[in-house]
Design a protein around this nucleic acid. Structure first.
Lengths: 249, 249
DNA sequence: CAAGAAGCTTGACGTTGGTCAAAGCGGGGT
DNA sequence: ACCCCGCTTTGACCAACGTCAAGCTTCTTG
């Protein structure tokens, strides 16, 4: 193992350098020493296979998890079995922040493809962030961003029609892929129609029908999970008007 | 002004002692000196009249706001004027956390009755929380709780029918009032039918009709904004099943 | 105090999206 | 390579909720 001293910090830097243009999940504006402190806290990354649980609702909360590669969904289920997908999560995103409040995870996190995840023991991050102000601030920002994200989903679920929801969803996926350096207008969905529907507050048949409708309009092509945005402007036009007024584009 | 040295810290303690049983908005497990440090940071509380804006979407974010007395709504509006109420907020709750991520407020906060609010300059709170670990942890917990709250609203908007939403809403208001020492089953709503509808993803007519239906069932009485829960168990029965499976009672 | 505005209730009707059903397709596992 | 199961598509029908409208009550403001 000649690369043993290639600490996971370096691995993380490599991962994160894939996500330029975008604020990274953690290492931001830290000096050399601070980085090595952070490095000491991050546990070696773990691999997950499609379908694996990263954590489950009700489990004791100990750590946050940073996705290095892969794709996850988070979901809550109700007593009678209805499932609500609360988010889809890609590389560079941080999972588990809802567990801090009660020291218990509040949702399930499930890998939708084979993935790699860094574990960040929260109590140690908390100590470290006391010593490194920019880290503390970054944490606050990440949590705040999660709040903003959730609220924009509330707006989607509360105000938008099926077509608007689907258009917003496709554009959101597109934009996040683009941020990570992938093609914006040609991608593979990692989740099923049912999961999309659950996330958007629609039934899977409605998702399917709406995708077909978009295809008939010539706005997108649909080949099972392979989606191409042919006229993304058409989708944008559909949701212009129902997006947040003070979008600081 | 003989009470000048009655610092607003003391006023805050008085306010907060009204909310026993419940985690308070800020002073939690701090010693004497820490309290006085906190006191130095909290700006004198300000009064707001019904209809006043505490902050507006798009304004620069500088402070969080703790409600001492009164009642607020937060809402986002879309470009074509649709409004989504994202929450109703009572004494002891903290507003503005969505502004941290982009240094800009992401929603409007509007007083629904005459209210009194403490301003907490965020940068100073951040410094202070570095010195007082329990304060830092408390902040993380408050933000996490907001995330949990938003996600349970997503579950409501994504999965529940009109009757279930209304029942969940009434029980939520009831429980929060009880926490603050008010009657749980006899209260005045501070918001209009339209605002309730916006929050729940329903039209005001549906809210009105559903309240009437509950009244006909004998579960509640409705006299304009005056609500009495006659058979809260009936409402609970309605939403049992569609609430989060891992509710830690 | 009067008058207008805003909020609430209720009814009739329409539309969206949910439900149920059937059939096609595709991929993973043996 | 084959088979089976799960995912997807599509259609027909239906229910829940939205829309439109009218009339009423309660606040607000001059």
């Amino acid at each position: 193992m000649p690369e043993q001293n290639n600490s996971n910090l370096h691995a993380m830097k490599v991962t994160c350098s894939n996500c330029t243009l975008r604020e990274l999940c953690l290492p931001i504006g830290l000096n050399r020493e601070e980085l090595s402190q952070l490095d000491a806290v991050i546990r070696q990354s773990r691999r997950f296979r499609r379908g694996d649980y990263l954590f489950r609702s009700g489990e004791p909360f100990k750590s946050l998890f940073a996705i290095r590669t892969g794709f996850f969904k988070t979901c809550m289920s109700s007593q009678d079995g209805r499932e609500q997908v609360t988010g889809f999560h890609m590389s560079g995103e941080l999972l588990g922040m809802d567990g801090i409040s009660a020291n218990v995870h509040g949702c399930d996190a499930i890998a939708l493809e084979d993935s790699e995840v860094c574990e960040l023991p929260f109590s140690r991050m908390q100590c470290l962030s006391r010593e490194i102000p920019s880290l503390q601030h970054h944490f606050y920002r990440l949590m705040s961003r999660e709040i903003v994200r959730d609220q924009s989903i509330m707006l989607l679920l509360g105000n938008m029609k099926a077509e608007e929801r689907l258009a917003a969803f496709l554009l959101n996926v597109s934009q996040r892929l683009a941020t990570r350096g992938f093609a914006a207008n040609d991608f593979i969905l990692r989740m099923s129609r049912e999961e999309i529907g659950s996330f958007l507050g629609l039934k899977l048949e409605t998702v399917s029908r709406t995708l077909s409708k978009f295809q008939q309009q010539g706005w997108i092509t649909v080949d099972h999970k392979h989606i191409q945005l042919v006229q993304p402007e058409a989708l944008k036009a559909l949701i212009s008007g129902c997006t947040h007024a003070h979008q600081h584009a």
